[in-house]
């Protein structure tokens, strides 16, 4: 579905990602684990065309997408849920969803408004509220719902459990399970290892912009020394 082959990403002159490779298959949740500043967000931004991957290949459904504009990448069916949520604060919940709405691609799972409101009941009550007036948890729900309005086939979820209440973390877990059940490919960036273990099939560990481990979740569980070295705080 989505495959990164040896990408090198730069911010201006700063070399951030070094030879990063990973793959996400349909119906699979891959956790991208690592500490703050390890390169998780940059990896996601590289996929979306928001950070400049100068070398390497990014393949989506077999076609190269490196160098495409963000909107063109999104239109191929990649949904991006940024870490900072980036809700449109001056727009209502409904308007935020409208911005995310796209004509579905062939074979894409379409999410009706009712479904999204069932998935995120809090949003249903606040549909006419401004994005800026929502709580952090509600904003997190809105940013995912907004992305699902575009009927993506692949979702990049950047730290959905960060800074939200345990109830919301629970809800995020359910959401990810729902996406997986619908056959979507999910790349999940996380610092919360326990959360990632619960929802992911595979794990990639990134440290200083380099992939250090790539394997099944169970494999990672069996290697406490890897967790200790790259993920312990």
């Amino acid at each position: 579905m989505l495959e990164l082959r040896g990408i090198h990403t730069f911010y201006g002159a700063a070399h951030i990602l070094h030879d990063v490779s990973l793959e996400v298959r349909p119906g699979e949740v891959v956790a991208l684990l690592g500490r703050n500043g390890a390169g998780k967000t940059t990896t996601m931004k590289s996929v979306m065309g928001l950070a400049e991957a100068r070398r390497g290949e990014i393949l989506y459904e077999g076609r190269p997408i490196r160098g495409l504009a963000a909107f063109a990448i999104a239109r191929l069916g990649i949904g991006y849920v940024p870490e900072e949520r980036r809700i449109f604060k001056q727009l209502t919940v409904m308007e935020n969803l409208e911005v995310g709405r796209r004509e579905p691609l062939e074979g894409a799972r379409v999410w009706e408004l009712d479904e999204l409101f069932t998935l995120f009941p809090n949003l249903a009550e606040r549909r006419e509220n401004l994005g800026g007036h929502l709580s952090g948890g509600e904003q997190q729900m809105l940013t995912i719902a907004r992305t699902l309005m575009g009927a993506p086939k692949t979702v990049l979820l950047d730290e959905p459990s960060e800074g939200v209440a345990p109830v919301i973390v629970e809800q995020m877990a359910h959401t990810i399970e729902a996406l997986k059940a619908q056959g979507l490919a999910v790349l999940l960036s996380e610092q919360n290892v326990r959360f990632a273990e619960r929802v992911s099939d595979r794990a990639c560990i990134i440290e200083s912009g380099r992939i250090q481990f790539d394997g099944a979740m169970a494999e990672l569980a069996a290697r406490p020394e890897v967790r200790e070295q790259y993920l312990a705080l």
Binding site: M48, L50, A69, A70, F71, A74, R75, Y80, P82, R86, F88, K89, Q90, L91, E95, N96, V99, G100, R102, R146, T147, G150
Partner: peptide, 14 residues
């Protein structure tokens, strides 16, 4: 209006 707030995000939404 959305782009006035955050045009990059609007682009990332397609």
């Amino acid at each position: 209006r959305a782009a006035t707030e955050d045009r990059e995000m609007v682009g990332a939404l397609g």
